[in-house]
């Protein structure tokens, strides 16, 4: 045993700073601070820093974040869901058609929308697992099919593609309050967003299931070999993304009192962008919910910040594109640092 002491001398203490540097959400947190400072300077006196301004970007961030949190978990498990945007449109139309056209109670309509979400999620998961096709392709198919079905059925049943007057049975009903009420001036969506963020973080970091998510995304064969039910993990997460999209649809329908077949377009890509800005790898196995939350916050701040600066909001997407690229470059560098043999 002569060599043992020599081995033990090689203590690998990676140090506090370095450990922080290799956290997946670092880029998003730093980015959020930068973006905030930028708009505080450029748009601080035109309302960005007021309470109303803060609420406005928090609400945008919350709506994206509600979807980005489950999408983050799914991406860490190594799969994409491109059908969340279409799911938002579909769930909204289900609620609007069943309440406005058929007079069903709001809670029944919400349950129907949730049931549809579970079905869509299970279908996505089942096809991905059974065929072994990339989830990118499978859910891309679902993106088109579900949107098409939504438009088709909406026109077939109501003759319209926008349905207004979703009153949920009048004022003071509990469901609209839950989905789009206000507490202290903050819309309910912000609380949903933060609640999901806490729940998602807890699941990912503190439960067995969270460890399985990392395992399924990191190396599906290795994870399966040590007994992780990777298929079940993925199925469940596909259901979660669809349910997250449905929650957002409920918030939108109850706050605008209307549904539109085109709601949620491009949301799937924004959610992926938020998750990637939040430090997740497209290849799976690495990332965090906190990162996705900050990714969504950046989105919200940029979108509303540009509005407050008075610059034409057409420039919003340029900003997002540049940021996405910068974040990915930064994350690649960080991952290399994190996995360097020391």
């Amino acid at each position: 045993m002569t060599g043992t002491s020599a081995v033990q001398d090689r203590v690998r203490d990676i140090g506090f700073l370095r450990r922080q540097l290799t956290r997946p959400e670092l880029a998003a947190v730093a980015g959020a601070v930068l973006v905030f400072v930028f708009f505080a300077i450029t748009a601080g006196d035109s309302g960005f820093l007021t309470f109303g301004g803060t609420v406005s970007y928090l609400e945008v961030a919350a709506q994206l974040g509600i979807v980005a949190v489950p999408v983050a978990l799914l991406m860490i498990a190594g799969e994409f869901d491109l059908s969340v945007g279409s799911m938002v449109g579909a769930a909204g139309i289900v609620v609007a058609v069943t309440t406005v056209e058929y007079g069903l109670p709001m809670w029944v309509a919400v349950l129907l929308a949730l049931a549809l979400a579970v079905l869509v999620g299970l279908f996505n998961g089942y096809v991905v697992i059974r065929t072994g096709l990339p989830s990118f392709i499978v859910t891309l198919g679902m993106l088109f099919a579900l949107r098409g079905l939504t438009i088709g059925f909406s026109r077939l049943l109501t003759g319209r593609t926008q349905i207004g007057g979703v009153t949920a049975g009048g004022e003071g009903q509990p469901l609209p309050v839950i989905f789009s009420g206000e507490v202290g001036g903050l819309p309910a969506s912000v609380f949903w967003w933060l609640g999901l963020a806490v729940l998602g973080t807890w699941v990912l970091q503190r439960t067995r299931f969270g460890n399985w998510i990392f395992g399924a995304g990191g190396d599906v064969t290795a994870a399966r070999n040590v007994g992780v039910p990777t298929n079940r993990v993925k199925m469940l997460l596909f259901v979660c993304t669809a349910v997250g999209a449905t929650l957002l649809a409920m918030i939108q329908v109850t706050s605008t009192r209307s549904a539109d077949v085109l709601r949620g377009e491009l949301l799937e890509l924004q959610a992926i962008a938020a998750v990637v800005i939040g430090g997740a790898l497209l290849t799976g196995g690495y990332g965090s919910v906190v990162g996705a939350v900050f990714g969504a916050l950046i989105f919200g701040m940029v979108q509303m910040g540009i509005f407050f600066t008075g610059v034409n909001t057409d420039w919003f997407q340029v900003f997002v594109g540049v940021m996405l690229l910068a974040a990915v470059l930064f994350n690649t560098y960080i991952r290399r640092q994190a996995s360097k043999e020391r």
Partner: peptide, 15 residues
């Protein structure tokens, strides 16, 4: 059969 980017103890007990 280890997950490279996952922490040591998380790998040790995976599954």
């Amino acid at each position: 059969a280890m997950i490279p980017l996952l922490g040591i103890s998380r790998n040790f007990f995976l599954g």
